[in-house]
Design a protein around this nucleic acid. Structure first.
Length: 284
DNA sequence: AACACTGTCAACCGCTCCGTA
DNA sequence: CTACGGAGCGGTTGACAGTGT
């Protein structure tokens, strides 16, 4: 079957854009706004594919773009967002004003990957080298990635404070050492949060985190951004640091609206649509 | 100086998503 | 409900600049 091409390839330029082409595109969008990209090239007098025009505008010509090096704060934010969202570059870009998905993607592949590897972190899974504490059971092998099923094992043994150590597994059968493939695909089907008794002293919690909403930054106040950043900092602690078990346990116990926590929704504590049948909140 | 190698990043390609008729 | 078309996304490519030998 096949689809009709997005443009007449025989009469379109390819490769690097000239200054004249850039200027034509800028002038046209200034005069008419971002409209139908398919028809834009013809209307603007450009021998380019509409997709190419869109890409050029979004990644290079847009006036609100922030050029220049990424700051340390941006680095860390990208890492944390990637640990939660995977390769959702456009969503990540939405959290970084003036940055484009393509720019972040390139920056990730060229700089951050190497940075994480040098820290001993798998850039795809964000799994750190197994970090054991003095407690015999405290293992936290991975920062919660997106759209994957997680079992959190709360181990009360050897814990004088009666606060559980937490082991996060990729699934019920895998070991805590498994590599977690960061899935950038679709949001997976969800199941209720389930608590699976492993033994009298160990409880497995199947914690699924599904994230898939588009980001509308214009809805998000700076306070919410801060809240979201704080949440990220909580969920995805620097992997080199030992995870405070009390804090992690609190994290699990707390019922939260992830929409709000991540900053997708308005200023209330909960969007009101994310309580599932088991009474736990989940992303909606 | 010439060549090889490496890193960076703009741009392309193919696919999926989503709105609409 | 379905098919279609446009928009958008993420992976990949290739040109070019920088660096090392």
């Amino acid at each position: 079957m096949g689809r009709s091409p997005c443009c007449e390839k025989a009469h379109t330029n390819k490769g690097a854009w000239t200054k004249q082409e850039d200027q034509r595109l800028i002038n046209y969008i200034r005069a008419h706004g971002e409209g139908c990209w398919r028809s834009l090239p013809k209307a603007a007098g450009l021998q380019r594919c509409g997709k190419s025009c869109r890409l050029r505008w979004i990644n290079y010509l847009r006036p609100d773009l922030k050029r220049g090096n990424f700051t340390e704060e941006e680095d860390e934010l990208i890492i944390k967002l990637h640990s939660l969202l995977g390769n959702k570059w456009s969503v990540i870009a939405g959290r970084l004003p003036g940055r484009t998905d393509n720019e972040i993607k390139n920056y990730w592949n060229t700089h951050i990957k190497r940075k994480l590897i040098s820290r001993g972190i798998d850039p795809q899974t964000h799994a750190a080298a197994i970090s054991t504490t003095n407690s015999a059971t405290a293992v936290f092998t991975t920062i919660i990635p997106t759209t994957t099923t997680k079992n959190i094992s709360m181990d009360y043994e050897n814990n004088v404070d009666q606060k559980p150590n937490i082991i996060i597994n990729n699934n019920a059968t895998s070991s805590s050492h498994d590599e977690t493939k960061c899935n950038s695909g679709t949001t997976e089907e969800t199941k209720p949060l389930e608590i699976i008794p492993q033994s009298t002293s160990q409880v497995m919690i199947n914690l699924e985190l599904s994230i898939g909403l588009p980001l509308h930054t214009d809805h998000i106040s700076s306070a919410e951004s801060t809240a979201s950043y704080n949440f990220l900092a909580t969920v995805a602690p620097p992997p080199t640091a030992a995870v405070p078990m009390a804090g992690a346990a609190e994290m699990v116990a707390k019922t939260v609206c992830l929409c709000w926590q991540i900053g997708f929704q308005g200023g209330s504590q909960c969007c009101g649509k994310c309580k599932n049948t088991t009474g736990f909140y989940r992303f909606c």
